[in-house]
Amino acid sequence: MIKSSVYRVAFIGCGKRAHEHAIGVQVDSRCEVVGLSDISTASAETLNAEFGFQAKIYTDHKEMLAKEKPDVVLICLWTPLHLPVFRDCTEAGVKAVLCEKPMSATWGDCQDMGRIAEETGCQLTFSLQRRFAKGNQTVRRLIKEGKIGQVLRMDLYSPPNLLDCGIHTFDQAISYMDETAAKWVLGAVDTTEIYNWFNVPSECGASGQIIFANGVQANLYSGSIDTWEPTQDMAKIWAGVRVIGTDGFIEVMWDGQIVRGVNYEDPSWKPEMELSSMSDQMKGYVRHAIDCLETGEEPEVSHKKALRASEIIFAVYESVRRNARVELPLTGVTDSPFITMLENGQFTK
């Protein structure tokens, strides 16, 4: 645990997402940005100027790690680079890494990131910043208070690409159930089109069923609302969760916007509407990560929690490969079943 009240901070990757992370770093007086690394010097210079960091600029992140010796690093790179760059950070003695989501392109790499974090003691978090949205915090409280009774079922909605977008929906659902892990998964993917997000190929839609360890059943809908032919309700929560309990239900968008809440015994009840911007969420994410670095507590968006959501994604893909439901924990899988099937021509029209 670091005892100092000021932490040397560095960015690896200075594009759009780095700017969003920088909002949180800029307002935390415990963060002193000492280095920015990007293959584009212009991108690093823009980030430096926009936020007034006065940091040294590098095109080689390893050189920056060696010379600046940061305590905290923010990795804002494309997905396949997360594991190797995180490894470089731990080898350089970095104490905390705030990494862009998703974890990695394969289940094996995701597990390796978790293993390295555990072995080195480096605090690894992922930018599942929507956990810090006020609305999502309110929903978690209402569920714990029993406002909708015992949770029975959830409908999970996500834009296309389970790996990059679905992780937010799965993480949101898991957080509503006090971090309960999935028990088994049955899934299907739509390969009418193949997308490429941050150098990782993906499906254009997916559906499935997830049974959680507490018995809650979740139905998954992923894809463009233009292809769903959605009902009005589906269109309202195209990215988020409907939580259905014995005494009512709540419909929530990703960012905590409560679309509707119903209590069967009290028709007049309406849940509080508490909205927060992406900037507010990123400020909460960075502040909490630094707090946990000081206290040693598990962060709200720790690698352990990111692994639970990621496991569901790769289990959906593995279910497609096996043509069967997949029991969790997911074992015997280190690749991305989707990418393997794609490369093997299984989705050829």
Rank of each mutant, 00 (worst) to 15 (best):
K3R: 09
I12A: 12
G13V: 01
C14T: 06
K16F: 13
G35L: 01
G35F: 13
S37W: 02
I39E: 04
I39S: 06
I39L: 11
L47C: 00
G52T: 06
G52D: 00
K56C: 01
I57R: 00
I57Q: 00
H61A: 06
E63P: 02
V73D: 09
L74H: 13
T79C: 04
T79R: 12
V85Y: 12
D88E: 14
E91R: 14
V94W: 05
C110A: 15
Q111D: 09
M113Q: 07
M113A: 04
E118G: 06
C122E: 07
Q123D: 00
L124S: 12
A133K: 02
G135P: 08
V139L: 10
V139G: 02
R140I: 10
I148Q: 10
V151E: 14
T169G: 00
F170Y: 13
D171Y: 08
Y176Q: 09
A181W: 01
T191I: 08
I194R: 11
Y195S: 10
C204I: 11
L220T: 00
S222D: 10
I225Q: 15
Q232P: 03
W238A: 15
G240V: 02
V241F: 10
G245M: 10
G248M: 07
M253C: 07
D255A: 00
I258Y: 07
P267M: 00
M278T: 12
V286K: 02
R287N: 14
A289M: 11
P299G: 07
E300Y: 14
K305D: 01
R322V: 03
R322N: 04
E327Q: 12
T331W: 02
V333L: 03
T334F: 10
I339D: 09
L342I: 09
